[in-house]
Design a protein around this nucleic acid. Structure first.
Length: 243
DNA sequence: TGCTAGTCAATACC
DNA sequence: GGTATTGACTAGCA
């Protein structure tokens, strides 16, 4: 089967891959864009042999004339993204070895502002995460190297910023069927009393990793479940690490 | 078994 | 009403 690049595999779309910084990965990126990996980005050339014979003979059919007319007038409807294509575009691996997550986050924040898109709408339609998660990702993005499966979200945001405004609009209006959380609803979040909070903050400053026994004492003294004390230290360590 | 990273979702905050 | 914060849950890893 012979293919030609589809509407979303245009020079504009490919351009970022050909900047000198990615040059060394040229082969890798080119191979990832092949019809075998991303068939929906390509269009099979069905009539190739016919057109070749016509070119040889110099005969132009009525159909060809009509087609040329349409192309000249530009009356071709803009291509419409399917859910599958949108997911493929957003999930395309990033060519950079170590992308700047801060830069990606800033660009998304800027776009949300200028396009007047709410975080909730974007988080659910594009990255498949909750509003709160998006908010914290945008405010304090982790360095690429410190991330593991969290990179997926940045890949989608990176690709979202690479496409045209028209394509972004289409994606925002598509239902991408992104996986929803299957977690059990839980009891409403506990809020610590002022004394509990002050004690826990003071302890976090002094003890990085309390033993089981220490956690037991703390929970007894503050009247909190051990799991709550455990979670508090865990969240505090994480906060200290990235703030 | 304990820890980290990723995340949810309630709720505080502006 | 939209965003930021935060306590809790969970998968995966050492």
């Amino acid at each position: 089967m012979t293919y030609q690049p589809g509407p979303y595999l245009t020079p504009d779309y490919m351009l970022p891959y050909w900047e000198p910084v990615y040059y060394q990965q040229e082969y890798q990126m080119y191979s990832m864009m092949t019809p075998e990996y991303y068939p929906s980005l390509w269009t099979p050339l069905v009539h190739q042999s016919n057109s070749e014979s016509q070119e040889d003979s110099g005969v132009v059919s009525e159909d060809d004339e009509k087609e040329e007319e349409v192309l000249e007038k530009g009356s071709c409807p803009p291509p419409t993204l399917t859910v599958h294509q949108a997911n493929e575009i957003l999930g395309t691996p990033i060519p950079e070895r170590c992308p700047d997550t801060k830069k990606i986050a800033n660009r998304i924040t800027e776009w949300l502002k200028t396009s007047k898109t709410h975080q909730k709408e974007f988080s659910e339609n594009v990255i498949g995460r909750s509003q709160g998660t998006l908010s914290s990702i945008l405010k304090t993005p982790k360095p690429w190297k410190a991330m593991h499966c969290g990179r997926e979200v940045f890949i989608r945001m990176y690709n979202f910023m690479r496409i045209s405004e028209e394509e972004r609009k289409q994606i925002m209006n598509l239902q991408l069927n992104l996986p929803k959380s299957t977690r059990q609803p839980r009891v409403s979040n506990r809020r610590f009393t002022r004394v509990q909070k002050e004690c826990l903050d003071g302890l976090v400053e002094r003890i990085e990793k309390p033993s089981k026994e220490i956690k037991r004492v703390i929970s007894r003294e503050l009247g909190l479940p051990e799991s709550t004390v455990h979670n508090y230290f865990m969240n505090a360590r994480r906060k200290l690490k990235y703030d």
